[in-house]
Amino acid sequence: MIVCERKPLPAILENLAGRRRAVVAGCSECVTVCHAGGEKEVALLRDLLLLARPDLEVDTIVLTRQCDGEFLEALDALAGEADCLISMACGVGAQFLAERYPCTWVFPAVDTRFGGGARRPGVWEERCGFCGDCVLHLTGGICPIIRCSKSLLNGPCGGSQQGKCEIDEAIECAWQKIHDRLEALGRLDLLDVVLPAKDWSRARDGGPRKLVREDVAL
């Protein structure tokens, strides 16, 4: 999922300066699962805003998916009444709102942190860097691009010690994990291959990405 985290309240209030009527728009997908912008968080943010700005009028809505044009229509009526929209979805959702309502001020109430998953309640970890060219079949199912602090493709740097990354003891060394897993699977031979320089053109470096699939197009 896309893991998000709500911005501090003062940062949200700053964006509301001079605004009179807002809609707090949540999303039922990732941000609901990671407790950043679902129904509960939308209601909480509304209450916090009203406490800080009793003069403000605040409507709320939780859209099925902010990252999908067909579900945005449900917001049209409320958006027409408001002078700003506060998106509690990821950056994709906030941008879809901004595109749909060109004359309305849209801003995010969450920071889009990373592509990851929940290890246990309240703990999310990054797992995918969206590089567009998956190498997990070469690295025992552990991503060196996003889980190694230096995105190394040919083994650990000199700072790996006791299974930890040099930059923070709370971070596991991805290459230690890759090594251990390939050893357990009897595939250490994969580590002897010099992996060539990565083709980053399929990642963000190639410019904004777009995927067109004729087979599912209408």
């Binding site: 083994g155 650990p156 790996s160 580590l191």
Partner: peptide
């Protein structure tokens, strides 16, 4: 770095 880990991997990496 012969002192980094995984120790067994250091020589493999040197070989690379």
């Amino acid at each position: 770095n012969p002192f980094a880990e995984p120790f067994a991997f250091r020589v493999r990496r040197l070989a690379k």
